[in-house]
Design a protein around this nucleic acid. Structure first.
Lengths: 331, 331
DNA sequence: GCTAAGTATGAGATCGATTGCTGAGATCGG
DNA sequence: CCGATCTCAGCAATCGATCTCATACTTAGC
């Protein structure tokens, strides 16, 4: 147990330290007989290589920062979950970095990431602010962004098709018979939030409805404010699309506190497809993002970029998830 | 930007590498004049020490594993949030380790933690399984557990007083006029879950009510099963305490799907005090755990243990949080 | 003015790996 | 049977810090 270094193993196996090193990291360079012997000895001793020493020498570590604004938001939590798994499988360790939306923190994490030779990092989602930070660090170290990025050229990204998602939501509501469909906006400064909103505005104008934005704020209270707004309207919409599940939760909760029932009085849809939605009251109809895929793909993109410098942009398809928060409009 | 080592800075400042090292990590050992000069030069170059090299030499790093079964569970997410902050402030980096309840993973994380000279780790919450893993690694590296531990002697812990929490819940419900109060159990294998259940059983017997456990399962479906059970009862309780907020959510959701309304038909309480509860429908009455404190204290305990070997056990006070999911019993 | 006790810095070994270079054997064609 | 080629393993420098020891320079006391 105590202090196993490569030299100890080398001595125990009767070879030189460099041979042990090769036995592990470049197996084809060692005669298979020798290699197996070394591996057996190492195994017996319970030896594992020091990731620290390795990283120092190789100038590339296995620490992958996951930079998110708020891990408390279930979307990021679900992302973190799938990412830890994907990371584990490939021998990375995920560093949890929570910015709280503070650009200074993002900067700090980028600096730290360089200092510890991170092979790459994952940022989700990028606000305009993050995009700028990205530029400031002309990265030798690579980043993958789980979101759209203004200037799409330099950074790999993975996103879900916002427009398609909104279309799915609108279609679902239309097919239920709704014609007056409101919208509540989501997280601050995010490209995604912007895209969803734009899509709503466009599509709902096309479908010759009148766009009806109940709240375009970006804080956690958007839901509550939207509810207030709803109550004050003479002709409230019969259905509301929330920019994300969390806002939908808050909205339904606030509505409920004023005696408005979902879906009896008004239908509400979310956007994200959080697991939590299935246990909400009522279970939330929503547009599902394939979060697990996003995590895996992000890491793949990063590795690909490291390998051959390719910068890909993957756009995933959202999916309608009908549960119980939507129904036909009230007569 | 490029490859700043301590030697570069040393050369630039016209001193030896060891002096630069001291200027940073043992300021009092360097003449203040020299030190300031060095610091200025370093600053100008944009130099930061390599945590990797430092850790390798010092045999102690700043990587702190946070080992949780499921980051998707908002309780752990909130914990992770406060812990990243606490960690950041003290110069640690949090490594997110998700076990999914798999003991093999826990073992793996412990091994990794030794390999990378983690000064300590945080485990939450410990199941019996984790406790055993802890023993297996007779830790030179220290661990703090956010939960109770069987054999309390060797590992620092921070917990919330389960009995007191259940008492708070029971008192609240009694004061509302409830006499028939059911219970739904929580997460598998956890000491905390066990403690809460025991407390409920004892206290509710003492208050000469009849304990009424709707479900003692431990999976995410406990809530749904409890609801089913509730519906089948001839004399269902007028109030239900859930072992944790997530179960309460699921319970209320399932109940709602069968037309049972909370709190009109039955009062439901949670236990945790998740931020999410405030935006549930209805907003959840619950027993709040001071999660932020738990995170900070955990790190403090770890540091204290590292310093002087002290093994403390902190028990925090829970707090009643009345929102809208409880009311007087239906006539 | 000279020795004793500090102070402040430099030298160099070390932490645990990787890797280019070198040389010893093995293999092979003619 | 000999030189050419190929394998395989050892040597030693290196990554970026830390830390013990030794040394040069102050400062103090008498």
């Amino acid at each position: 147990m105590a202090d196993l270094s490569i030299d100890i193993v080398a001595k125990a196996a009767g070879v030189h330290r460099s041979t042990v090193s090769r036995a592990f990291s470049r197996p084809e360079a060692v005669k298979s007989e020798t290699r197996e012997h070394i591996l057996r000895v190492a195994e017996g001793l319970g030896y594992t290589m020091s990731p620290l020493a390795q990283a120092l020498r190789r100038k590339t570590s296995t620490f992958v920062p996951l930079i998110v604004p708020d891990i408390t938001n279930p979307f990021f939590a679900e992302l973190a979950k799938t990412m830890t798994q994907a990371a584990d499988e490939r021998g990375y360790q995920l560093l949890l970095c929570v910015t709280n939306g503070d650009p200074a923190k993002t900067d700090g994490y980028f600096t730290a990431m360089q200092a510890m030779y991170a092979p790459f990092g994952i940022v989700a989602p990028s606000t305009k602010v993050d995009t700028e930070a990205l530029k400031r660090f002309d990265f030798g170290h690579k980043v993958v962004v789980i979101d759209r990025v203004e200037d799409d050229t330099s950074v790999p990204t993975v996103t879900v098709d916002s427009r398609r998602g909104i279309m799915l939501a609108l279609d679902h509501l239309h097919s239920l018979g709704h014609t007056s469909i409101g919208y509540v906006s989501g997280i601050a400064g995010t490209h995604t939030a912007q895209d969803r909103m734009d899509a709503y505005l466009e599509l709902s104008a096309e479908g010759n409805g009148t766009p009806l934005v109940l709240d375009s704020g970006s804080d956690p209270d958007a839901g509550a404010r939207a509810a207030k707004h709803y109550l004050e309207m003479e002709n409230p919409p019969t259905a509301i699309i929330a920019a994300n599940d969390m806002v939908a939760f808050a909205l339904i909760s606030a509505l409920g506190q004023s005696g408005i029932r979902v879906p009896e009085d008004v239908s509400v849809m979310g956007f994200d497809g959080l697991a939590l939605g299935a246990r909400f009251n009522p279970p939330l109809t929503t547009v599902r993002q394939p979060i697990a895929d996003m995590g895996n793909i992000a890491i793949e993109l990063a590795e690909k970029q490291n390998l051959n410098g390719s910068v890909d942009h993957v756009v995933l398809e959202p999916e309608l998830l009908v549960r119980a928060s939507t129904s036909g409009p009230r007569k």
